[in-house]
């Protein structure tokens, strides 16, 4: 494989990515803390008129099928839950990044967001099978953000998918990450890590972004979370993905140290991923269409 760009060029491109909106940034910081109140989440949303409008549109979309219209942000946040609120704020703040066509991975528009949303739901569900208590909301948010590095690398990987896949099939590289490193000197987890640092994301989210394909290398305090996202990403790919890197990563079997997950439970997780994904995506699409 011939190198297409240098790591320095990628890092420079990451510095050009717009910062998160103040609301999204505050929500991510807040919801990553163990000790916070829902009222604090509500306060942040209330201070952002555009976000408030978007949250109300989503909660009242036909996808949720509520009988009575929700007119207050307190009720909307209570109904949707803080993880979904953080997801809405992120999409509002960085929609262009998550929804652009993934040329470098032969993926259509919104493929990254769809994969991230499935991963978020799967990570949240897998967190319920953790041997030690694991914050499901943080697992959801980490899932939303885990593959953000691909949005940056995609622009440098146009027309490379066939070459990377041939390299994997011929055992020249061990997985898609290694293919990215061959072509760019950096993979999407490291690119995501650099972006996450620029965005000043909380440490647990940075760890999930950096190590979701190599969870054994994560700091001990975040290993359980990172393994949840590792499995969530794999489940999302099993549920269907229209990108060239789908299923081109290894499963770290050591997840069993952190989760009790039978094949039947995994099937339940997949069921929930497909159901919740349809509901959330339809709600967000309905809201976009009325904007």
């Amino acid at each position: 494989m011939t190198q297409r760009a240098s790591k320095e060029e990628i890092i420079a491109a990451i510095k050009e990515v717009p910062l998160l909106s103040p609301s999204a940034s505050q929500l991510l910081q807040l919801t990553a803390k163990a000790d916070h109140e829902l009222a604090e989440v509500i306060d942040i949303v209330k201070c952002d008129a555009a976000l408030t409008a978007q949250v109300l549109k989503i909660v009242n979309s036909v996808a949720f099928g509520l009988v009575h219209e929700v007119t207050t942000i307190d009720r909307a946040v209570g109904y949707l839950g803080e993880r979904v609120i953080a997801g809405i704020a992120l999409e509002d703040s960085t929609g262009a990044l998550f929804h652009k066509e993934l040329h470098g991975y032969d993926g259509p528009k919104s493929e990254l967001w769809n994969h991230d949303l499935r991963t978020a739901i799967a990570s949240r569900e897998i967190a319920t099978y953790a041997k030690q208590p694991l914050n499901k909301d943080v697992a959801f948010t980490a899932g939303i953000l885990h593959a953000v590095g691909k949005a940056v690398l995609s622009d440098f990987l146009t027309n490379s998918a066939q070459e990377v896949l041939s390299g994997i099939d011929a055992d020249e590289v061990i997985d898609y990450l290694a293919g990215e490193r061959e072509l760019l000197g950096i993979d999407h987890t490291e690119a995501g890590y650099e972006l996450a640092k620029n965005w000043e994301l909380p440490e647990p989210l940075i760890a999930a972004i950096r190590y979701h394909h190599t969870p054994a290398a994560a700091p001990d305090e975040y290993k359980s979370l990172v393994y949840a996202v590792h499995l969530g990403c794999i489940v999302a790919m099993m549920c269907g993905s229209q990108a060239s890197d789908s299923l081109q990563y290894h499963l770290d079997q050591n997840y069993a140290k952190y989760f009790d997950l039978s094949s039947e439970q995994l099937a339940m997780v997949m069921l929930e991923v497909n159901e919740a994904f349809d509901t959330l995506r339809n709600a967000m699409t309905d809201a976009e269409e009325t904007n």
């Binding site: 997985d175 794999i234 790919m237 099993m238 299923l247 081109q248 990563y249 290894h250 499963l251 079997q253 997950l261 039978s262 094949s263 995994l266 099937a267 997949m270």
Partner: peptide, 16 residues
């Protein structure tokens, strides 16, 4: 019925 790399029994849903 695709599989992931290194599937164990739990994760080989495609085969099942």
């Amino acid at each position: 019925g695709a599989k992931i790399m290194d599937p164990n029994n739990t994760f080989n849903i495609g085969k099942r």
